[in-house]
């Protein structure tokens, strides 16, 4: 078997451990403390934001315009519309400006 195969197998096992690990640790506790509950409720916004922020800090002006535009669209429309609008905006700006 190639080294790519074994790297992939090891990467897949460790990835699975990250996906089940948080639950395995937390499920050892009988009761979840309310503060922990607050922390868990913050997970979506806290983690997902970190996947956007560096792009905001490093994007060219076209990228920033596309992000702001998509953000505004998301206030009124669903996620798919927002994504397609943002994608259209960045492609147009990169092609024509």
């Amino acid at each position: 078997m190639s080294s790519i195969f074994w790297i992939t197998v090891a990467g897949a096992i460790l990835t699975f451990l990250t996906r089940i690990g948080g639950h395995l640790v937390l499920s050892r506790f009988e009761r979840i403390h309310p503060r922990v509950e607050v922390a868990l409720n913050a997970v979506p916004a806290a983690v997902l934001t970190t996947l956007v922020a560096p792009a905001i800090a490093t994007a060219d002006w076209r990228g920033l315009v596309a992000l702001v535009f998509a953000g505004l669209v998301s206030l009124r429309f669903n996620a798919l519309t927002m994504f397609l609008a943002g994608a259209a905006m960045i492609i147009l700006l990169r092609q024509f400006s």
């Binding site: 979506p44 792009a55 905001i56 992000l67 953000g71 998301s74 996620a79 960045i90 990169r94």
Partner: peptide, 19 residues
Amino acid sequence: ALGIDMLLPIYFLGLVMGF
């Protein structure tokens, strides 16, 4: 040119806004 590098941030921004 196809803006591939910005698609993921745009997509994740949508998820952030959803919350």
